[in-house]
């Protein structure tokens, strides 16, 4: 070590082997050791060929990319170990393009490392702050401008201008008014009404009470949903009115949100989590627990739909049901409390 004597060749920013700013010892930059390609023409030639080979392979791969694009049908599949079954066209395009790009990159870097100069260069840093005189000049110019404009003197001008500027955001906010409707009671109502049939989600079949076994679970929606979805052209009502039906032994029901809201042990609950609105899907029939897959809030359907675990703060709203003359399940009215996530005005 210490082949180079301390302080003999101070780098920029150091004197007597010490950094001028921080005062810590600084060792000089060692002399450059040439690489093989710098002194051996054969090694240089080899490096040149390696770089060119990478670029040439990239050319070949780009041609292969084009051929694959044209020749390999988009529908053919290929099965690759570990990766599974994937589109042949997709994999070939990915491999050829990826490798072509990769080889351009490695070629350029190999070139820089082997053949371009590798002598480290030292450059001086210049102070990032201006001189005191320059700063003073800026302040002076600023003050001169302020004086010339009379911004300080003309109080009336200044205050009215500031007032106008302060109100400028008004149009920006006002213009946003038509982004959406006022909330009104939208979050409080669903399309459930007295005597609306409960139908199965997806197939819209009326549900006979006697068809549901104890322990059974059915995803249901109001019968009028399809019609309303079509006329409104959106899924908004589905996001509020979806329910799940479960049947349990009436003796196991510990409590309901209203007197006799079940029909012979069949209970209807909102499917929309009261936390942030995920549709709930996991029901454990032994415990009567309903679990939300989003953040694991758990509700006890045998006991008023109360929250027994997780981040949801409100119970699952229950829908009062009964049957029509033919024994099909119908609603006895809308939910008695808002479904879905909380909101400021909910109360």
């Amino acid at each position: 070590m210490n082949e180079i004597e301390l302080g003999s060749t101070d780098p920029v920013g150091a004197r007597d082997g010490k950094d001028l700013v921080s005062g810590v010892p600084v060792l000089p930059l060692p002399a450059h050791t040439p690489r093989r390609a710098d002194i051996d023409p054969v090694a240089a030639k080899r490096a040149e060929r390696q770089v060119a080979l990478m670029f040439a392979s990239s050319i070949a791969l780009l041609i292969a990319f084009t051929v694959a694009y044209i020749k390999v049908p988009n529908t053919s599949l290929v099965s690759i170990p570990v990766i599974g079954t994937v589109g042949t066209n997709h994999v070939l395009l990915g491999l050829t393009l990826g490798l072509a790009l990769f080889l351009i990159g490695t070629g350029a870097i190999h070139w820089a490392k082997k053949l371009m100069p590798d002598v480290e260069v030292t450059q001086e840093r210049h102070s990032l702050s201006s001189s005191a005189a320059e700063r003073a000049e800026v302040v002076e110019i600023f003050n001169r401008g302020a004086a010339e404009s009379g911004f300080g003197e003309h109080k009336l001008i200044r205050r009215t201008l500031l007032g106008a500027l302060a109100l400028l955001p008004i149009p920006l906010v006002v213009l946003l008014r038509d982004l959406g409707p006022m909330p009104n009671t939208r979050l409080r109502n669903t399309i459930w009404k007295k005597d609306v049939h409960l139908v199965t989600d997806a197939t819209y079949q009326k549900i006979k009470a006697s068809d549901i076994p104890i322990g059974g679970l059915i995803n249901a929606v109001p019968e009028n949903l399809l019609e309303i979805e079509e006329s409104e052209g959106n899924l908004n009502q589905r996001g509020k009115a979806s329910i799940i039906l479960v049947r349990m032994d009436p003796a196991e029901i510990l409590g309901q949100q209203g007197e006799n809201w079940d029909y012979e042990g069949i209970l209807a609950f909102s499917k929309i989590c009261t936390h942030v609105g995920c549709p709930i899907s996991l029901y454990q029939q032994r415990t009567h627990h309903l679990l939300c897959p989003c953040h694991q809030s758990t509700f006890d359907l045998a006991n008023k739909g109360n929250v027994i675990f997780g981040p949801a703060a409100r119970r699952m709203p229950q829908l009062a049901i009964t049957v029509d003359a033919e024994g099909y399940l119908v609603a006895r009215g809308d939910f008695k409390e808002p479904v879905g996530p909380s909101f400021w005005e909910r109360g």
């Binding site: 780098p11 920029v12 920013g13 150091a14 950094d19 001028l20 700013v21 921080s22 600084v26 060792l27 000089p28 930059l29 060692p30 820089a112 371009m116 590798d118 480290e120 260069v121 030292t122 450059q123 001086e124 840093r125």
Partner: peptide, 15 residues
């Protein structure tokens, strides 16, 4: 070695 608070040591942008 050769690095101080007042300098930059490395390679030129170009090439």
């Amino acid at each position: 070695p050769g690095r101080t608070e007042s300098n930059v040591v490395g390679y030129r942008l170009y090439p």
